[in-house]
Every structure is written in structure tokens, then in C-alpha cells.
């Protein structure tokens, strides 16, 4: 049994103009010790998926259908209080964009990091402080930082603190939502290295969300590409990266410069991401797809296994 099992998940924003189908019919698994990269253009629903996984969609977002099982426990439809007490942070935690606003500016680092320990495990304040200090050291911070306020730390230090916060209760699944986006390149590399080494050391299971394929491919064992609320291609990192099948993935990879290959010119994807209130019929990518043919705008393509563990949602690969 996989550690995390997501089936037919639908998360919509219920606006006055109609539901925005930010996550529509998404299914995937995550094994223990595995890291899954989740990539796509901004607005494709990847962050919504992240928040849906810990059941904290900002209103008017709502999970309308589907199932999420963490370690065999169904979390969709579970009362909020139970979720708070049993699931959040214990089973699943999140690394936010720490350089942004994930830390409360008026509380000390130690205060904020020890909260889950105090509220979940009933640990005494002294013990919580000790554990916080340990974890701060684990992410390469001076433990004395627990007395500091967020504004006294640099962006990289804040990000490390946020990582330490996510690790505190040794959760089964960690969601990392754009953890390096707001940082400068050198710090970005440091944080990535830290996450990689932590993953190895602690055998973490991570869902890594980013719009930056280059960053994701560094850390992910498997890659999932999202487009217009759907996963269009999923498979082992190496395969998917070197041999992308879906036209969208090909375009997406074409849109980033690579070191090892000589670049003729950078591709860009013509057209804009679709309106998620009224997504295109059939394959959602068809209006922008250069290879579209007869069934694309009518039938929704099924998932097709093109090689072991590598699935594509595209009519081009249908066995007819």
C-alpha cells in the first residue's frame, strides 16, 4: 500500500462566476521515501493541489470530490478538529515559502516552531525548546536563533527555519510548495542541497511543487506535469526529463535552457493557459497543441502507459 494515495481529487474555487476547476480529477501515489515533483505553469492548479492535500484550501476553495489516504487513513471529509489533532503536521506537513510570510513577524522563531509540539503532543515548554534547538541544528542553523524574530533573519535562514518547522513531528509526508522561489540563486542551491541531504538522512517522503523544472529534477524521483488542473504526464524523473512524451511537457522542457545540450533557440508556448471555469473540451491542451488532430477537441484522452511507470494523457499515444 502506498503511503499517500490520491484518487480522482477535485478541488474547486466556488466563485460567483462559477466553479474554478483548479484541480480536476487528479490521481497519483507516493511511496515511502520517495519524492514526487509537481510542475506546471503558474495557475495550473499545483499549489491548490498542495493545499488540498493538507485540507487547508483558502476560501472559497473546497474539495468537492475524491479521496486522499495518508498511511491508509481517509482525510477527505474528516472533521476539522480531528484533522487538526490527528493528521496535520503529524502525518503531513508543509514547507512554505519561508522567505515570504510563513513566519509570523511578531512571534519569535522558537515560539512558532514549538507550537506544534505543545499543541499536539502536550510537551512542556522546556522540552519543546530543546527539540526545536535540535531541529534548528539539523537544518544548519545556530540553535540560539530560537530567541530571534523573523525580521532578524535573512531569507535563507528563514527558509531553513521553515524546513525545521516542517520536520518537527517527523511526518509521513512533506509538501514543499515553491520552497526556493523567492531566494537568490546561491541560497536556492544551498536550500536544495539541504533538502536532498535531509531526504536521504531521514528517509523523507516529499511532494515538491515548483514551476521550475530544473529545480525539481534535482530532487524528484518521479515527476508529474500538471496542465489546467489535470496531471497530463507522470513518470520516473529521468525518463520524463530526457524523453518527454506529452506535447505540453515537451514545450515546457523546451522552454528552459539546458547546460548539456546546445540550444538553438528557447521555445515558448504560444497561447495562454486556459480559463479554468470553462476549460476546453476534450484534451485541455488542444487549443495550444501543434500536433492536435481529429479526436483532440472532442474526447478526453485517457492515461496511457508508454513505458513502465510512465503515463501520458494524450491521444497521440492511443493504441488504435
Amino acid at each position: 500500500m502506498p503511503l499517500l494515495e490520491v484518487r480522482n481529487l477535485k478541488a474547486y474555487y466556488l466563485t460567483s462566476r462559477g466553479p474554478v476547476k483548479a484541480v480536476d480529477n487528479v490521481s497519483f501515489d507516493l511511496e515511502r521515501g520517495e519524492s514526487l515533483g509537481l510542475a506546471g505553469e503558474s495557475g495550473c492548479g499545483k499549489s491548490t493541489l498542495g493545499f488540498a492535500l493538507i485540507n487547508l484550501l483558502p476560501p472559497p476553495g473546497k474539495i468537492v470530490d475524491g479521496s486522499i489516504k495518508i498511511d491508509g487513513i481517509e482525510v477527505v471529509g474528516k472533521p476539522d478538529e480531528e484533522l487538526r489533532r490527528e493528521v496535520r503536521w503529524k502525518k503531513i506537513s508543509m514547507i512554505f515559502q519561508g522567505a515570504m510570510n510563513a513566519l509570523n513577524p511578531v512571534l519569535t522563531i522558537g515560539d512558532q516552531l514549538s507550537e506544534p509540539l505543545i499543541y499536539h503532543q502536550g510537551v512542556s515548554k522546556e522540552e519543546a525548546t530543546e527539540r526545536v534547538k535540535e531541529h534548528l541544528e539539523l537544518v544548519g542553523l545556530d540553535p540560539d536563533i530560537y530567541k530571534r524574530y523573523p525580521h532578524e533573519l535573512s531569507g535563507g535562514m528563514k527558509q531553513r527555519a521553515v524546513i525545521a518547522m516542517a520536520l518537527l513531528e517527523h511526518p509521513d509526508v512533506i509538501i514543499a510548495d515553491e520552497p526556493t522561489t523567492a531566494l537568490d540563486v546561491i541560497v536556492q542551491a544551498q536550500i536544495l542541497n539541504l533538502l536532498k541531504s535531509l531526504k536521504k538522512k531521514l528517509n523523507l517522503s516529499i511532494i515538491f511543487i515548483s514551476h521550475d523544472l530544473a529545480v525539481i529534477s534535482e530532487i524528484a524521483d518521479r515527476l508529474a506535469i500538471m496542465y489546467a488542473g489535470e496531471i497530463v504526464e507522470i513518470g520516473p524523473s529521468e525518463n520524463l526529463y530526457l524523453n518527454p512524451r506529452h506535447p505540453y511537457t515537451q514545450k515546457l522542457l523546451g522552454a528552459i535552457p539546458r547546460l548539456k545540450k546546445k540550444v538553438e533557440r528557447l521555445e515558448f508556448i504560444p497561447g495562454a493557459p486556459p480559463n479554468l471555469i470553462h476549460p476546453p473540451s476534450g484534451c485541455r491542451f488542444h487549443p495550444r497543441c501543434p500536433y492536435r488532430f481529429e479526436p483532440c477537441d472532442k474526447e478526453e484522452p485517457p492515461f496511457i502507459e508508454v513505458e513502465p511507470g510512465h503515463y501520458v494523457r494524450c491521444h497521440l499515444f492511443a493504441k488504435r
Binding site: 487538526r84 512554505f96 515559502q97 510563513a102 513566519l103 509570523n104 511578531v106 518547522m165
Partner: peptide, 24 residues
């Protein structure tokens, strides 16, 4: 975001309001 973070951490809603939001 820190409110979302506090909720994700499993901080009770009352504490979110009085400790996090009100202080900030």
C-alpha cells in the same frame, strides 16, 4: 501565509486568532 502555516501546524483556531492574528 503565517495564518495558513499556523493552521497547518495544527494550532487550535482560538490560538490562531488570539496568539497569531491579534498579536500581528
Amino acid at each position: 501565509d503565517y495564518v495558513m502555516a499556523a493552521r497547518a501546524k495544527g494550532v487550535p483556531e482560538r490560538k490562531v486568532l488570539y496568539k497569531h492574528v491579534l498579536r500581528a
